[in-house]
Design a protein around this nucleic acid. Structure first.
Lengths: 210, 210
DNA sequence: GGGTACATGTAATCAGTTACATGATTTA
DNA sequence: TAAATCATGTAACTGATTACATGTACCC
């Protein structure tokens, strides 16, 4: 018997099944990609592996289509709903995992060339600007399609609220990396490493500042 | 043969060995706890398991103390340094993993009671305020101990710069959850669920606003 | 010298990840 | 009808996590 505590993946699947009704792993994959997947990736193989685990615990059921693709469709059970409710009723105190390879590289940047610092920072700035840009396009699309009156009790409301956290994080990240770029640049200038006429921010130009 | 690409854990250990010199797994554990461990946790068993892997690849060497605790001490090799440099020279483009259980709960909060939303948000607010508070105390201690003249090229500089990312994230998180708390509260009021005289923010009071 | 906290490790399990492989549907 | 893409899965591996277990130093 594995410990009776479920993983975040378990609750992800339970929650999606509860909200969307019976779903195939592929459905789950699509749902994840457009929501939490923006900042917490779940490889598709996981979404094929998790539902059977839930079935074994009695938290979901599996049925198979007779014709066509014979997809496996999973549905949440009563005990599954209970587990989900229990989880929602007991807020997590575990700290956020901010797994960012760029940050890890920055942490060790002093071991590389001074050029490495600059390169890392510019790359990260580009990545985070692009991501922020993507979020804002999504938000625009959504506003147009769902109209102005978004009720705070709707599913859409909480969905977009969660994405907002992603946006806030990306904004903080852009601020941060801008600072690092500026800092690294001035250090290199001071040490006479850069020519005066060098392009200062090539990686930054292609995205409009917010 | 496993793929010749190293994991973040590998680079973490390589980087620490490069910076600190020969170290035992326990040393690594301490170093991690006071730096990146603040936002990217590496369980101690990992820091006992990873160095031998590096040895097998020729990126580190192992020696054992003769007396006392007979600790295993690991040191980085030339190929190890090369691998580290190569990594630093090629900035990551992989997106940040923001694994936050509270966010996941929020995403599904509409499936719980309206009370669940409020509870989750207050708990998260408390957690993130406490973390932010801890960072700021650390920063204060460090400023006092290292004096005013921090050279931007020093190790300490980059160390604290990296922690700064943690601070920025926590600030963004506090903002976010404050908004959610306010929102959830007003929704509950509107639906007549709260009495007028209910305590509005008990979870928040114990930490000073920054 | 007995308790407590710190330090050091191992073993077993399991989830996560990568890679592979093939089937179904659409479109050129 | 061939190509391309979307959809659906599985297998193997291995890294991450948990739990266990014991040793060493310090303090009362």
């Amino acid at each position: 018997m594995s410990s009776d505590l479920l993983s975040p993946t378990s609750y992800l699947v339970l929650g999606l099944l509860a909200r969307e009704g019976p779903s195939s792993p592929y459905d789950l994959k699509q749902l994840v990609a457009s929501t939490v997947g923006h900042f917490w990736t779940f490889p598709h193989a996981l979404l094929y592996a998790e539902p059977p685990r839930l079935v074994k615990r009695g938290l979901a059921t599996e049925t198979q289509e007779e014709r066509g693709r014979r997809r496996r469709v999973f549905a949440i059970t009563e005990p599954g709903m209970d587990a989900l409710q229990a989880w929602l009723g007991q807020p997590s105190r575990q700290p956020t995992e901010l797994r960012d390879r760029g940050l890890l590289q920055l942490f060790f940047a002093d071991l590389g060339t001074s050029d490495a610092q600059h390169t890392i920072a510019r790359e990260q700035l580009e990545v985070h600007r692009a991501k922020l840009d993507g979020y804002e396009q999504d938000a625009g699309r959504e506003r147009r399609s769902s109209g102005p009156g978004v009720d705070s009790r709707t599913v859409e409301h909480w969905r977009s609220r969660t994405l907002t956290m992603g946006v806030l994080y990306e904004r903080a990240a852009v601020d941060f990396w801008e600072g690092v770029v500026a800092q690294a640049h001035s250090v290199e200038l001071a040490s006479g490493r850069l020519a005066e006429d060098e392009d200062r921010s090539p990686a930054v130009a292609f995205v409009e500042p917010s």
